[in-house]
């Protein structure tokens, strides 16, 4: 492996790793940088890594917890709804002594962030939802994640499948397969039977009374851009940033997306 390949692979080098016990569940939190805190909630898999956080960390402290059932955090099969994740994070944020902070999330993490904001908007300054899932949009249904074949996954993740493929191991890797299976299992506890999201989310999104940036890949096949207006029509203070030519993994595919979110948080 040459050095260039090493740099493009996700790495947690330079991040600080801390373990917390949240009501009995081991919760690993990575952080990088210093400044006003922004918490980032990852999507349904941790393999894409968190390279984008290095850009945000220029002037912010970026806090990245692994969800229970994902990455290096522990498992708890009693966490089987987004609301359980919201309560888990409520406890973690208390432990982290985060009073008022910015919250960002991608994909499934954006769903958790949106539900957190519905219930605890008073603790948030700003909200970033990137390629968010969770809102059921009848006119523009999202594909059922669980039905996507492994071989088709790269073309769903990024507009150029090569970008997603570069995040996968080059050789078959049992650890990678087992981690993916575990994370998909954790995700399935929440939404196997509701892959479109929470049917009640739209009923309550008006409570997200904080400035909210939607970062959306123009060619996102997981959450088709056609659904963006369903979010902006119910959020009280939304702004939509469409990233041209980019798919679902906006922050891995596009530095412009990373910078757009960073700028919004800096305003």
């Amino acid at each position: 492996m040459n050095i260039t390949q090493k740099i493009t692979k996700p790495s947690m080098e330079g991040f600080e790793r801390t373990e917390y016990d949240v009501a009995g569940t081991k919760t690993v939190v990575y952080s990088i940088g210093s400044g006003d805190p922004v918490v980032f909630l990852h999507g349904g898999a941790t393999f894409p890594g968190f390279e984008f956080a290095r850009s945000w960390a220029r002037d912010r402290k970026v806090i990245i917890p692994h969800h229970p059932g994902f990455g290096e955090s522990g498992d708890d099969d009693r966490i089987n709804s987004v609301h359980d994740y919201v309560l888990h994070y409520l406890e973690l944020f208390d432990q982290l002594k985060l009073e008022r902070f910015d919250l960002a999330g991608h994909s499934f993490g954006a769903w958790i962030a949106a539900e957190f904001a519905i219930e605890h908007a008073h603790r948030l300054r700003k909200l970033v939802l990137a390629g968010p899932t969770g809102l059921v949009i009848k006119e523009h249904p999202a594909p059922d994640f669980f039905k996507i074949r492994a071989t088709e996954l790269p073309e769903y993740l990024t507009a150029d499948p090569k970008v997603a493929l570069s995040l996968f191991p080059e050789e078959p890797d049992v650890d990678f397969l087992v981690l993916g299976y575990r994370e998909t299992t954790s995700l399935s506890r929440v939404c196997w039977d509701k892959p479109q999201g929470n049917r009640k989310l739209g009923r309550w999104l008006h409570r997200v009374k904080v400035p909210t940036l939607l970062v959306w890949g123009e060619r996102d096949r997981f959450c088709p851009i056609a659904g963006a207006s369903a979010w902006t029509s119910v959020l009280p203070d939304p702004r939509l940033e469409v990233i041209p030519g980019v798919g679902h993994l906006v922050f891995e595919e596009s530095q412009a997306a990373v910078e757009a979110a960073h700028r919004f948080l800096a305003e």
Partner: peptide
């Protein structure tokens, strides 16, 4: 086909024994 690959069906140590295949 791919339908054997069902999340949540088997324990992770069993999956590991089977080389990552359900």
């Amino acid at each position: 086909g791919e339908f054997a690959n069902l999340p949540g069906y088997i324990a992770l140590d069993e999956l590991r024994k089977r080389g990552g295949h359900v």
